[in-house]
Design a protein around this nucleic acid. Sequence first.
DNA 1: ACGGAGATGTCATGAATATTTCATGTTTCC
DNA 2: GGAAACATGAAATATTCATGACATCTCCGT
Lengths: 243, 243
Amino acid sequence: MKPPASPQKGSVLVVEDEPTLRVLLEHSLRQRGYQVSTVMDGEQALAFLETERPDVALLDWMMPGLSGLELCRIIRQKPGLKDLPVLFLTARTDEQDVIAGLDNGADDYLTKPCSTDRLDARLRALLRRTRPVQDIVTFGPLTLEPENHQVKRAGRPIALGPTEYRLLELFIHHPRKVFSRETLLERLWGPNVHVEIRTVDVHIRRLRKALNETGEADLIRTVRAAGYALDDGTISQHGPSSG
Amino acid sequence: MKPPASPQKGSVLVVEDEPTLRVLLEHSLRQRGYQVSTVMDGEQALAFLETERPDVALLDWMMPGLSGLELCRIIRQKPGLKDLPVLFLTARTDEQDVIAGLDNGADDYLTKPCSTDRLDARLRALLRRTRPVQDIVTFGPLTLEPENHQVKRAGRPIALGPTEYRLLELFIHHPRKVFSRETLLERLWGPNVHVEIRTVDVHIRRLRKALNETGEADLIRTVRAAGYALDDGTISQHGPSSG
DNA sequence: ACGGAGATGTCATGAATATTTCATGTTTCC
DNA sequence: GGAAACATGAAATATTCATGACATCTCCGT
Protein backbone atom coordinates (compact mmCIF):
# COMPACT_ATOMS: atom_id res chain seq x y z
CA MET A 1 0.00 0.00 0.00
CA LYS A 2 1.05 3.44 -0.77
CA PRO A 3 0.54 6.92 0.55
CA PRO A 4 -3.12 7.64 0.05
CA ALA A 5 -1.91 11.01 1.20
CA SER A 6 -4.52 13.69 1.15
CA PRO A 7 -8.10 13.00 0.20
CA GLN A 8 -8.84 12.09 -3.41
CA LYS A 9 -8.31 14.98 -5.69
CA GLY A 10 -9.31 13.23 -8.85
CA SER A 11 -8.17 10.70 -11.41
CA VAL A 12 -5.46 11.40 -13.96
CA LEU A 13 -4.46 9.50 -17.05
CA VAL A 14 -0.78 9.96 -17.82
CA VAL A 15 0.30 9.33 -21.40
CA GLU A 16 4.07 9.37 -21.58
CA ASP A 17 6.44 7.18 -23.55
CA GLU A 18 9.63 7.77 -21.64
CA PRO A 19 9.68 5.28 -18.76
CA THR A 20 11.61 7.40 -16.28
CA LEU A 21 9.36 10.38 -16.58
CA ARG A 22 6.26 8.23 -16.64
CA VAL A 23 7.14 6.56 -13.40
CA LEU A 24 8.16 9.82 -11.84
CA LEU A 25 4.89 11.47 -12.78
CA GLU A 26 2.88 8.54 -11.60
CA HIS A 27 4.58 8.46 -8.28
CA SER A 28 4.56 12.13 -7.51
CA LEU A 29 0.97 12.60 -8.55
CA ARG A 30 -0.11 9.67 -6.48
CA GLN A 31 1.78 11.14 -3.61
CA ARG A 32 -0.31 14.24 -4.00
CA GLY A 33 -3.53 12.35 -3.74
CA TYR A 34 -4.44 11.77 -7.34
CA GLN A 35 -5.62 8.45 -8.60
CA VAL A 36 -3.21 7.79 -11.43
CA SER A 37 -3.30 5.51 -14.44
CA THR A 38 -0.48 5.43 -16.97
CA VAL A 39 -0.14 4.29 -20.53
CA MET A 40 2.80 4.50 -22.88
CA ASP A 41 1.35 5.84 -26.09
CA GLY A 42 -1.66 7.25 -27.83
CA GLU A 43 -3.15 3.96 -28.86
CA GLN A 44 -3.06 2.59 -25.38
CA ALA A 45 -4.58 5.83 -24.23
CA LEU A 46 -7.50 5.46 -26.60
CA ALA A 47 -7.98 1.86 -25.53
CA PHE A 48 -7.97 2.95 -21.93
CA LEU A 49 -10.47 5.70 -22.58
CA GLU A 50 -12.86 3.20 -24.09
CA THR A 51 -13.61 1.88 -20.67
CA GLU A 52 -12.40 4.47 -18.20
CA ARG A 53 -13.17 8.09 -17.83
CA PRO A 54 -10.48 9.95 -15.85
CA ASP A 55 -11.05 13.48 -14.65
CA VAL A 56 -8.13 14.80 -16.65
CA ALA A 57 -5.54 13.58 -19.15
CA LEU A 58 -1.89 14.53 -19.06
CA LEU A 59 -0.35 14.07 -22.53
CA ASP A 60 3.21 14.18 -23.62
CA TRP A 61 3.52 16.40 -26.66
CA MET A 62 6.14 14.38 -28.50
CA MET A 63 5.40 10.70 -28.64
CA PRO A 64 6.14 7.91 -31.06
CA GLY A 65 3.06 7.00 -33.06
CA LEU A 66 0.24 9.38 -32.31
CA SER A 67 1.52 12.72 -31.18
CA GLY A 68 -0.12 14.42 -28.26
CA LEU A 69 -1.85 16.84 -30.53
CA GLU A 70 -3.23 14.14 -32.80
CA LEU A 71 -4.41 12.21 -29.80
CA CYS A 72 -6.09 15.28 -28.46
CA ARG A 73 -7.92 15.84 -31.72
CA ILE A 74 -9.19 12.30 -31.72
CA ILE A 75 -10.34 12.66 -28.17
CA ARG A 76 -12.21 15.79 -29.04
CA GLN A 77 -14.14 13.96 -31.71
CA LYS A 78 -15.31 11.16 -29.47
CA PRO A 79 -18.78 11.88 -28.26
CA GLY A 80 -18.24 11.01 -24.62
CA LEU A 81 -14.84 12.58 -24.33
CA LYS A 82 -15.48 16.03 -25.69
CA ASP A 83 -15.15 17.61 -22.28
CA LEU A 84 -12.19 15.65 -20.99
CA PRO A 85 -9.68 18.26 -19.85
CA VAL A 86 -6.28 17.79 -21.44
CA LEU A 87 -3.00 19.10 -20.15
CA PHE A 88 0.07 18.90 -22.39
CA LEU A 89 3.62 18.31 -21.28
CA THR A 90 6.00 19.90 -23.75
CA ALA A 91 9.66 20.63 -24.14
CA ARG A 92 10.39 24.31 -24.08
CA THR A 93 11.56 24.28 -27.67
CA ASP A 94 8.14 23.17 -28.84
CA GLU A 95 6.46 26.09 -27.24
CA GLN A 96 5.50 27.89 -30.44
CA ASP A 97 3.97 24.76 -31.95
CA VAL A 98 2.07 24.13 -28.82
CA ILE A 99 0.57 27.53 -28.68
CA ALA A 100 -0.52 27.02 -32.24
CA GLY A 101 -1.99 23.66 -31.29
CA LEU A 102 -3.91 25.00 -28.37
CA ASP A 103 -5.75 27.31 -30.70
CA ASN A 104 -8.16 24.67 -31.77
CA GLY A 105 -9.62 23.88 -28.45
CA ALA A 106 -7.06 22.18 -26.26
CA ASP A 107 -6.90 23.07 -22.66
CA ASP A 108 -3.54 23.89 -21.24
CA TYR A 109 0.12 23.09 -21.45
CA LEU A 110 3.14 22.95 -19.23
CA THR A 111 6.79 22.99 -20.22
CA LYS A 112 8.95 20.25 -18.81
CA PRO A 113 10.82 19.86 -16.70
CA CYS A 114 8.52 21.33 -14.15
CA SER A 115 8.09 21.02 -10.42
CA THR A 116 5.45 18.79 -8.95
CA ASP A 117 4.01 21.81 -7.23
CA ARG A 118 3.48 23.51 -10.52
CA LEU A 119 1.95 20.45 -12.10
CA ASP A 120 -0.29 19.91 -9.13
CA ALA A 121 -1.46 23.49 -9.22
CA ARG A 122 -2.23 23.30 -12.90
CA LEU A 123 -4.11 20.05 -12.55
CA ARG A 124 -6.15 21.46 -9.71
CA ALA A 125 -6.99 24.46 -11.81
CA LEU A 126 -8.16 22.24 -14.63
CA LEU A 127 -10.20 20.06 -12.37
CA ARG A 128 -11.73 23.04 -10.70
CA ARG A 129 -12.76 24.42 -14.04
CA THR A 130 -14.51 21.34 -15.27
CA ARG A 131 -15.60 19.51 -12.22
CA PRO A 132 -19.07 19.90 -10.80
CA VAL A 133 -19.20 22.28 -7.92
CA GLN A 134 -17.64 20.74 -4.89
CA ASP A 135 -19.88 20.53 -1.94
CA ILE A 136 -19.57 22.88 0.93
CA VAL A 137 -18.80 20.94 4.07
CA THR A 138 -20.10 22.02 7.43
CA PHE A 139 -19.72 21.06 11.01
CA GLY A 140 -21.47 22.95 13.73
CA PRO A 141 -20.77 26.64 13.18
CA LEU A 142 -18.05 25.87 10.66
CA THR A 143 -18.30 25.86 6.91
CA LEU A 144 -15.56 24.93 4.52
CA GLU A 145 -15.91 25.87 0.88
CA PRO A 146 -13.42 23.84 -1.14
CA GLU A 147 -14.24 25.96 -4.14
CA ASN A 148 -12.86 29.15 -2.66
CA HIS A 149 -10.53 27.62 -0.15
CA GLN A 150 -12.62 29.57 2.26
CA VAL A 151 -13.52 28.73 5.84
CA LYS A 152 -16.13 30.49 7.90
CA ARG A 153 -17.26 30.26 11.45
CA ALA A 154 -20.80 31.44 12.02
CA GLY A 155 -20.51 33.31 8.75
CA ARG A 156 -17.34 35.10 9.74
CA PRO A 157 -14.44 34.37 7.38
CA ILE A 158 -11.45 32.64 8.91
CA ALA A 159 -7.94 33.16 7.62
CA LEU A 160 -5.97 29.92 7.61
CA GLY A 161 -2.52 29.00 6.44
CA PRO A 162 -2.24 26.13 3.96
CA THR A 163 -1.40 23.51 6.54
CA GLU A 164 -4.13 24.61 8.88
CA TYR A 165 -6.60 24.53 6.05
CA ARG A 166 -5.71 20.97 5.14
CA LEU A 167 -5.85 20.03 8.79
CA LEU A 168 -9.34 21.38 9.13
CA GLU A 169 -10.31 19.83 5.83
CA LEU A 170 -9.33 16.43 7.12
CA PHE A 171 -11.07 16.99 10.42
CA ILE A 172 -14.29 18.27 8.99
CA HIS A 173 -14.65 15.29 6.70
CA HIS A 174 -14.45 13.04 9.73
CA PRO A 175 -16.33 14.87 12.43
CA ARG A 176 -15.47 13.87 15.97
CA LYS A 177 -12.98 11.30 14.83
CA VAL A 178 -9.79 11.29 16.84
CA PHE A 179 -6.63 11.43 14.76
CA SER A 180 -3.31 10.50 16.27
CA ARG A 181 -0.39 12.76 15.62
CA GLU A 182 1.16 10.00 13.57
CA THR A 183 -1.90 9.76 11.37
CA LEU A 184 -2.03 13.49 10.90
CA LEU A 185 1.61 13.59 9.94
CA GLU A 186 1.10 10.83 7.46
CA ARG A 187 -2.00 12.25 5.89
CA LEU A 188 -0.95 15.86 5.76
CA TRP A 189 2.76 15.60 5.26
CA GLY A 190 3.06 12.27 3.48
CA PRO A 191 4.72 9.06 4.51
CA ASN A 192 8.35 9.70 3.75
CA VAL A 193 8.62 13.07 5.36
CA HIS A 194 10.38 13.31 8.65
CA VAL A 195 8.85 15.93 10.85
CA GLU A 196 8.90 16.10 14.62
CA ILE A 197 5.75 14.66 16.05
CA ARG A 198 5.25 17.73 18.23
CA THR A 199 5.04 19.93 15.21
CA VAL A 200 1.48 18.74 14.95
CA ASP A 201 0.76 20.48 18.23
CA VAL A 202 1.95 23.74 16.78
CA HIS A 203 -0.32 23.55 13.79
CA ILE A 204 -3.22 22.53 15.97
CA ARG A 205 -2.53 25.56 18.05
CA ARG A 206 -2.49 27.80 14.96
CA LEU A 207 -5.73 26.30 13.77
CA ARG A 208 -7.30 26.83 17.17
CA LYS A 209 -6.10 30.38 17.35
CA ALA A 210 -7.57 31.17 13.97
CA LEU A 211 -10.88 29.51 14.72
CA ASN A 212 -11.33 31.09 18.14
CA GLU A 213 -10.12 34.54 17.28
CA THR A 214 -13.09 36.18 18.90
CA GLY A 215 -12.97 34.12 22.05
CA GLU A 216 -15.52 31.52 21.11
CA ALA A 217 -15.62 27.94 22.31
CA ASP A 218 -12.79 25.71 21.22
CA LEU A 219 -13.81 23.26 18.52
CA ILE A 220 -10.70 21.11 18.67
CA ARG A 221 -10.71 18.44 21.29
CA THR A 222 -7.42 17.27 22.71
CA VAL A 223 -7.55 13.61 23.59
CA ARG A 224 -4.64 13.02 25.85
CA ALA A 225 -2.31 10.28 24.75
CA ALA A 226 -4.43 9.77 21.65
CA GLY A 227 -4.58 12.83 19.43
CA TYR A 228 -6.99 15.50 18.34
CA ALA A 229 -10.52 15.67 17.01
CA LEU A 230 -12.91 18.25 15.66
CA ASP A 231 -15.69 18.44 18.17
CA ASP A 232 -18.44 20.78 19.12
CA GLY A 233 -18.24 20.61 22.86
CA THR A 234 -21.41 18.57 23.30
CA ILE A 235 -19.15 15.69 24.22
CA SER A 236 -17.24 15.84 27.42
CA GLN A 237 -13.51 15.75 27.36
CA HIS A 238 -11.64 12.81 28.59
CA GLY A 239 -11.22 14.26 31.96
CA PRO A 240 -8.73 13.86 34.72
CA SER A 241 -8.69 10.53 36.39
CA SER A 242 -6.67 11.42 39.40
CA GLY A 243 -8.35 12.23 42.59
CA MET B 1 6.47 4.65 33.46
CA LYS B 2 5.64 5.14 29.89
CA PRO B 3 3.00 2.95 28.32
CA PRO B 4 5.23 1.36 25.70
CA ALA B 5 4.20 -1.64 23.78
CA SER B 6 0.50 -1.81 23.42
CA PRO B 7 0.63 -5.53 22.96
CA GLN B 8 -0.51 -7.44 19.93
CA LYS B 9 -0.42 -4.91 17.18
CA GLY B 10 -0.35 -7.46 14.44
CA SER B 11 1.82 -10.09 12.83
CA VAL B 12 4.79 -9.29 10.63
CA LEU B 13 6.79 -11.48 8.34
CA VAL B 14 10.37 -10.27 8.03
CA VAL B 15 12.29 -11.36 4.95
CA GLU B 16 15.92 -10.37 5.32
CA ASP B 17 19.06 -12.22 4.35
CA GLU B 18 21.58 -10.41 6.46
CA PRO B 19 21.63 -12.11 9.87
CA THR B 20 22.50 -9.05 11.92
CA LEU B 21 19.72 -6.94 10.56
CA ARG B 22 17.27 -9.80 10.64
CA VAL B 23 17.82 -10.43 14.30
CA LEU B 24 17.73 -6.75 15.05
CA LEU B 25 14.43 -6.29 13.25
CA GLU B 26 12.94 -9.34 14.86
CA HIS B 27 13.93 -8.22 18.29
CA SER B 28 12.91 -4.61 18.06
CA LEU B 29 9.58 -5.36 16.44
CA ARG B 30 8.79 -7.96 19.02
CA GLN B 31 9.67 -5.44 21.66
CA ARG B 32 7.07 -3.17 20.18
CA GLY B 33 4.36 -5.73 20.46
CA TYR B 34 4.35 -7.27 17.03
CA GLN B 35 4.20 -10.96 16.50
CA VAL B 36 7.23 -11.55 14.33
CA SER B 37 8.25 -14.37 12.02
CA THR B 38 11.50 -14.23 10.09
CA VAL B 39 12.81 -16.00 7.05
CA MET B 40 16.06 -15.56 5.16
CA ASP B 41 15.04 -15.40 1.56
CA GLY B 42 12.23 -15.27 -0.91
CA GLU B 43 11.75 -18.98 -1.23
CA GLN B 44 11.42 -19.47 2.47
CA ALA B 45 9.02 -16.59 2.47
CA LEU B 46 6.80 -18.24 -0.10
CA ALA B 47 6.90 -21.48 1.80
CA PHE B 48 5.92 -19.65 4.95
CA LEU B 49 3.08 -17.87 3.22
CA GLU B 50 1.67 -21.20 2.08
CA THR B 51 0.48 -21.85 5.57
CA GLU B 52 0.56 -18.55 7.41
CA ARG B 53 -1.05 -15.26 6.69
CA PRO B 54 0.70 -12.37 8.46
CA ASP B 55 -0.88 -8.95 8.59
CA VAL B 56 2.03 -7.36 6.77
CA ALA B 57 5.29 -8.40 5.10
CA LEU B 58 8.56 -6.55 5.48
CA LEU B 59 10.84 -7.33 2.55
CA ASP B 60 14.44 -6.50 1.98
CA TRP B 61 14.85 -5.00 -1.46
CA MET B 62 18.19 -6.58 -2.32
CA MET B 63 18.35 -10.26 -1.56
CA PRO B 64 20.18 -13.22 -3.00
CA GLY B 65 17.89 -15.37 -5.10
CA LEU B 66 14.51 -13.73 -5.43
CA SER B 67 14.73 -9.98 -5.07
CA GLY B 68 12.18 -8.23 -2.93
CA LEU B 69 10.44 -6.92 -5.99
CA GLU B 70 10.23 -10.33 -7.64
CA LEU B 71 8.92 -11.81 -4.45
CA CYS B 72 6.33 -9.09 -4.23
CA ARG B 73 5.18 -9.76 -7.78
CA ILE B 74 4.77 -13.43 -7.03
CA ILE B 75 2.84 -12.62 -3.90
CA ARG B 76 0.56 -10.39 -5.87
CA GLN B 77 -0.33 -13.21 -8.19
CA LYS B 78 -1.32 -15.60 -5.46
CA PRO B 79 -5.05 -15.51 -5.03
CA GLY B 80 -5.12 -15.36 -1.26
CA LEU B 81 -2.25 -12.94 -0.91
CA LYS B 82 -3.30 -10.18 -3.25
CA ASP B 83 -4.07 -7.83 -0.43
CA LEU B 84 -1.13 -8.57 1.79
CA PRO B 85 0.46 -5.20 2.52
CA VAL B 86 4.15 -5.16 1.66
CA LEU B 87 6.72 -2.78 3.03
CA PHE B 88 10.15 -2.67 1.41
CA LEU B 89 13.42 -1.99 3.13
CA THR B 90 15.79 -0.36 0.69
CA ALA B 91 19.15 1.30 0.62
CA ARG B 92 18.91 4.95 -0.17
CA THR B 93 20.82 4.50 -3.38
CA ASP B 94 18.09 2.24 -4.71
CA GLU B 95 15.43 4.81 -4.19
CA GLN B 96 14.83 5.56 -7.85
CA ASP B 97 14.57 1.89 -8.75
CA VAL B 98 12.18 1.34 -5.94
CA ILE B 99 9.88 4.09 -6.99
CA ALA B 100 9.90 2.58 -10.43
CA GLY B 101 9.19 -0.83 -9.00
CA LEU B 102 6.19 0.14 -6.99
CA ASP B 103 4.08 0.19 -10.07
CA ASN B 104 0.61 -0.49 -8.97
CA GLY B 105 0.66 1.68 -5.92
CA ALA B 106 -0.04 -1.23 -3.67
CA ASP B 107 3.13 -1.03 -1.64
CA ASP B 108 5.34 1.19 0.37
CA TYR B 109 9.01 1.47 1.10
CA LEU B 110 11.39 2.70 3.74
CA THR B 111 15.06 3.54 3.29
CA LYS B 112 17.46 1.91 5.66
CA PRO B 113 18.98 2.46 7.99
CA CYS B 114 15.92 3.71 9.78
CA SER B 115 14.90 4.02 13.37
CA THR B 116 12.62 1.54 15.00
CA ASP B 117 10.25 4.38 15.67
CA ARG B 118 9.97 5.11 12.01
CA LEU B 119 9.49 1.50 11.08
CA ASP B 120 6.90 1.08 13.77
CA ALA B 121 5.05 4.13 12.60
CA ARG B 122 4.99 2.91 9.04
CA LEU B 123 3.83 -0.55 9.99
CA ARG B 124 1.06 0.90 12.09
CA ALA B 125 -0.01 3.09 9.21
CA LEU B 126 -0.06 0.12 6.91
CA LEU B 127 -2.06 -1.97 9.33
CA ARG B 128 -4.43 0.84 10.06
CA ARG B 129 -5.11 1.29 6.41
CA THR B 130 -6.06 -2.29 5.83
CA ARG B 131 -8.08 -2.65 8.97
CA PRO B 132 -11.80 -2.13 8.44
CA VAL B 133 -13.54 0.71 10.16
CA GLN B 134 -13.72 0.08 13.83
CA ASP B 135 -17.11 -0.71 15.15
CA ILE B 136 -18.81 0.71 18.14
CA VAL B 137 -18.71 -1.81 20.95
CA THR B 138 -21.41 -2.10 23.56
CA PHE B 139 -22.02 -3.95 26.76
CA GLY B 140 -25.16 -3.42 28.74
CA PRO B 141 -25.58 0.32 29.21
CA LEU B 142 -22.05 0.98 28.01
CA THR B 143 -20.92 2.01 24.55
CA LEU B 144 -17.37 2.55 23.42
CA GLU B 145 -16.67 4.32 20.16
CA PRO B 146 -13.07 3.63 19.19
CA GLU B 147 -13.28 6.11 16.36
CA ASN B 148 -14.10 9.00 18.62
CA HIS B 149 -12.37 7.73 21.70
CA GLN B 150 -15.66 8.19 23.41
CA VAL B 151 -17.37 6.15 26.12
CA LYS B 152 -20.97 6.51 27.16
CA ARG B 153 -23.12 4.95 29.81
CA ALA B 154 -26.81 5.04 29.02
CA GLY B 155 -26.04 7.79 26.54
CA ARG B 156 -24.24 9.93 29.06
CA PRO B 157 -20.63 10.68 28.11
CA ILE B 158 -18.00 9.31 30.45
CA ALA B 159 -14.67 11.02 30.98
CA LEU B 160 -11.81 8.57 31.21
CA GLY B 161 -8.07 8.93 31.47
CA PRO B 162 -5.93 7.08 28.92
CA THR B 163 -5.25 4.03 31.04
CA GLU B 164 -8.83 3.70 32.18
CA TYR B 165 -9.96 3.95 28.60
CA ARG B 166 -7.69 1.14 27.52
CA LEU B 167 -8.77 -0.90 30.49
CA LEU B 168 -12.39 -0.57 29.58
CA GLU B 169 -11.57 -1.22 25.96
CA LEU B 170 -10.05 -4.53 26.90
CA PHE B 171 -12.91 -5.43 29.21
CA ILE B 172 -15.66 -4.58 26.82
CA HIS B 173 -14.18 -6.75 24.11
CA HIS B 174 -14.33 -9.70 26.49
CA PRO B 175 -17.52 -9.24 28.45
CA ARG B 176 -17.69 -11.01 31.77
CA LYS B 177 -14.25 -12.47 31.33
CA VAL B 178 -12.14 -12.30 34.47
CA PHE B 179 -8.69 -10.83 33.97
CA SER B 180 -5.99 -11.37 36.54
CA ARG B 181 -3.93 -8.39 37.56
CA GLU B 182 -0.95 -9.98 35.89
CA THR B 183 -2.81 -10.30 32.62
CA LEU B 184 -4.01 -6.75 32.80
CA LEU B 185 -0.51 -5.50 33.44
CA GLU B 186 0.80 -7.44 30.52
CA ARG B 187 -1.88 -6.41 28.09
CA LEU B 188 -2.12 -2.78 29.04
CA TRP B 189 1.40 -1.99 30.05
CA GLY B 190 3.30 -4.42 27.89
CA PRO B 191 5.46 -7.38 28.66
CA ASN B 192 8.67 -5.83 29.88
CA VAL B 193 7.35 -3.22 32.21
CA HIS B 194 7.74 -3.51 35.91
CA VAL B 195 4.86 -1.98 37.76
CA GLU B 196 3.51 -2.88 41.19
CA ILE B 197 0.70 -5.34 40.86
CA ARG B 198 -1.49 -3.27 43.15
CA THR B 199 -1.37 -0.38 40.75
CA VAL B 200 -4.04 -2.21 38.82
CA ASP B 201 -6.39 -1.75 41.75
CA VAL B 202 -5.97 1.98 41.54
CA HIS B 203 -6.88 2.14 37.91
CA ILE B 204 -9.83 -0.16 38.44
CA ARG B 205 -10.97 2.17 41.13
CA ARG B 206 -10.74 5.18 38.83
CA LEU B 207 -12.59 3.36 36.12
CA ARG B 208 -15.33 2.46 38.58
CA LYS B 209 -15.54 5.98 39.86
CA ALA B 210 -15.90 7.38 36.38
CA LEU B 211 -18.49 4.83 35.31
CA ASN B 212 -20.61 5.18 38.43
CA GLU B 213 -20.40 8.92 38.81
CA THR B 214 -24.12 9.25 39.24
CA GLY B 215 -24.43 6.46 41.76
CA GLU B 216 -25.46 3.72 39.40
CA ALA B 217 -24.73 0.03 39.79
CA ASP B 218 -21.12 -1.03 39.65
CA LEU B 219 -20.24 -2.69 36.37
CA ILE B 220 -16.86 -3.99 37.44
CA ARG B 221 -16.89 -7.21 39.33
CA THR B 222 -14.08 -8.01 41.74
CA VAL B 223 -13.31 -11.68 41.80
CA ARG B 224 -11.44 -12.32 44.96
CA ALA B 225 -8.05 -13.90 44.43
CA ALA B 226 -8.62 -13.94 40.69
CA GLY B 227 -8.98 -10.48 39.24
CA TYR B 228 -11.61 -8.25 37.70
CA ALA B 229 -14.30 -8.50 35.07
CA LEU B 230 -16.77 -6.28 33.34
CA ASP B 231 -20.17 -7.50 34.44
CA ASP B 232 -23.70 -6.24 34.56
CA GLY B 233 -24.85 -7.87 37.75
CA THR B 234 -27.15 -10.37 36.09
CA ILE B 235 -24.78 -13.12 37.11
CA SER B 236 -24.54 -13.97 40.76
CA GLN B 237 -21.30 -13.18 42.48
CA HIS B 238 -18.99 -16.01 43.19
CA GLY B 239 -20.99 -18.13 45.58
CA PRO B 240 -19.92 -19.42 48.95
CA SER B 241 -17.84 -22.54 48.79
CA SER B 242 -20.20 -24.40 51.07
CA GLY B 243 -22.60 -25.24 48.24
C1' DA C 1 19.76 39.17 -7.14
C1' DC C 2 17.49 41.33 -3.10
C1' DG C 3 14.27 41.99 0.46
C1' DG C 4 9.85 41.36 2.68
C1' DA C 5 5.78 38.69 3.93
C1' DG C 6 3.99 34.52 4.97
C1' DA C 7 4.58 29.76 6.20
C1' DT C 8 6.90 26.13 8.51
C1' DG C 9 9.44 23.33 11.74
C1' DT C 10 11.95 23.17 16.19
C1' DC C 11 12.84 24.15 20.77
C1' DA C 12 12.51 25.68 25.74
C1' DT C 13 9.47 26.33 29.37
C1' DG C 14 5.62 26.25 32.35
C1' DA C 15 1.08 24.35 33.04
C1' DA C 16 -2.08 20.62 33.06
C1' DT C 17 -2.94 16.06 33.73
C1' DA C 18 -1.66 10.98 34.53
C1' DT C 19 0.68 7.36 36.85
C1' DT C 20 2.70 5.04 40.49
C1' DT C 21 3.47 4.06 45.07
C1' DC C 22 2.40 4.01 49.82
C1' DA C 23 -0.21 4.18 54.12
C1' DT C 24 -4.30 2.96 56.04
C1' DG C 25 -9.07 1.44 56.35
C1' DT C 26 -12.47 -2.20 55.04
C1' DT C 27 -14.18 -6.54 53.60
C1' DT C 28 -13.99 -11.51 53.16
C1' DC C 29 -13.31 -15.89 54.66
C1' DC C 30 -11.55 -19.50 57.70
C1' DG D 1 -10.43 -13.02 65.91
C1' DG D 2 -7.10 -12.80 62.52
C1' DA D 3 -4.96 -13.16 58.06
C1' DA D 4 -5.30 -12.24 53.37
C1' DA D 5 -7.22 -9.64 49.78
C1' DC D 6 -9.17 -5.56 48.38
C1' DA D 7 -10.53 -0.35 48.49
C1' DT D 8 -9.37 4.23 49.10
C1' DG D 9 -7.15 8.74 49.62
C1' DA D 10 -3.27 11.37 49.07
C1' DA D 11 1.56 12.47 47.94
C1' DA D 12 5.46 12.09 44.90
C1' DT D 13 6.76 11.47 40.13
C1' DA D 14 6.40 11.41 35.49
C1' DT D 15 4.35 12.37 31.23
C1' DT D 16 1.98 15.02 27.97
C1' DC D 17 0.31 19.33 26.22
C1' DA D 18 0.07 24.53 25.23
C1' DT D 19 2.50 28.39 24.20
C1' DG D 20 5.67 31.93 22.63
C1' DA D 21 9.89 32.78 20.42
C1' DC D 22 12.87 32.04 16.72
C1' DA D 23 15.53 30.39 12.72
C1' DT D 24 14.68 28.91 8.07
C1' DC D 25 12.52 28.53 3.88
C1' DT D 26 9.61 29.78 -0.04
C1' DC D 27 7.32 32.63 -2.77
C1' DC D 28 6.83 37.14 -5.14
C1' DG D 29 7.46 41.50 -6.67
C1' DT D 30 10.98 44.89 -7.58
